[in-house]
């Protein structure tokens, strides 16, 4: 009986397991292998040479690698923090009783369904110094110093514009996760706190926040993972520029492979991204308790 049962579940899982293993592990192993080679796609005459750890040493020694990792984390931390603040305020607001919230929720969900390429285009258009509405809005507010240079041509504002596009696209996700968490909170602690005469602010800090911690952590880790992969909006809005002010790890890996054609070195840089993805995936699994059952 147990043997039959065993056969049974393998039969369900095997096709997709094989699919994922073939499609996922072969490219990863391939990346690992070519990260030890020097291979320029435009110079077939140089051949594909084994260079040992040379790419890794170069990546570690080059300050640009560290600057790019720094920029990536700057982007991730600021966007996730803003998404958390906005998403939380919005989730708390939508958790109050009001008839129109259902429609509001649908509208707020829309950015999440829009292709990141289109999000990038929309914001690029909006912040365009000549034809976009935002710079003129800022000028009307008297903030002329910000709009002296085109917003995407100034290193500081360019990064902030990318963050803004990301916040626009993913705040809905954070809002929905937190709202689902808020709706699932037990009522008893609130009733007890009400009897004890706790103020709204006390109730928020001593009941809502601690009870909601799992949802907050899930939102933060998933968003960290997904914003580490940011590429589309950067590609469309700035192409990594001005200079390399908006170049993140993903974009750097892409540029090395498809603009400098250095297959080996690009693979090494991509493995750094992959390594970060592994770490945060493990953290996520620990959070939702997938590592603890047996």
């Amino acid at each position: 009986m147990s043997e039959r049962k065993n056969f049974n579940h393998i039969q369900y899982i095997l096709p997709s397991l094989l699919f994922i293993l073939v499609i996922f592990l072969i490219p990863i192993i391939y990346t690992l292998v070519i990260s030890f080679f020097s291979w320029n796609l435009l110079r077939p005459d140089l051949g594909i040479k084994f260079v040992g750890f040379k790419n890794y040493l170069q990546a570690l020694k080059d300050p640009f690698t560290w600057e790019t990792i720094g920029r990536t984390f700057y982007f991730v931390i600021i966007s996730v923090l803003l998404e958390l603040i906005f998403g939380f305020s919005l989730a708390l607001s939508l958790n109050t009783e009001f008839k129109g919230w259902k429609i509001v929720q649908s509208i707020i969900l829309i950015p999440f369904m829009i292709a990141p390429v289109v999000v990038g285009f929309a914001w690029k258009f909006i912040v365009n110094n000549d034809y976009g509405p935002l710079p003129h809005f800022l000028i009307n507010l008297g903030l002329t110093s910000i709009t002296e240079n085109p917003l995407l041509a100034n290193p500081t504002t360019a990064m902030f514009m990318i963050i803004m596009a990301d916040v626009w696209e993913y705040t809905p996700f954070v809002t929905l996760v937190l709202l689902a968490g808020l709706k699932a909170l037990p009522q008893e602690p609130y009733e007890a706190a009400y009897v004890d005469g706790a103020s709204a602010i006390q109730r928020f800090f001593y009941i809502t926040l601690p009870l909601l911690r799992p949802s907050i952590m899930v939102a933060v880790v998933i968003r960290t993972l997904t914003s580490l992969r940011v590429f589309d909006t950067i590609f469309i809005m700035t192409g990594g520029g001005p200079g390399s002010a908006t170049e993140t790890l993903s974009f750097y890996g892409y540029r090395l492979a498809f603009q400098s054609y250095q297959m080996g070195y690009s693979s090494t840089i991509n493995l750094i991204s992959f390594f970060l993805a592994i770490i945060f995936t493990l953290i996520y699994m620990k959070l939702i308790g997938w590592d603890s059952n047996e």
Binding site: R229, S250, G253, A277
Partner: peptide, 13 residues
């Protein structure tokens, strides 16, 4: 992990 891996890692291979 397959879901969370940055696309750029997979696109070159």
């Amino acid at each position: 992990l397959a879901r969370m891996t940055p696309p750029v890692v997979m696109v070159l291979p």
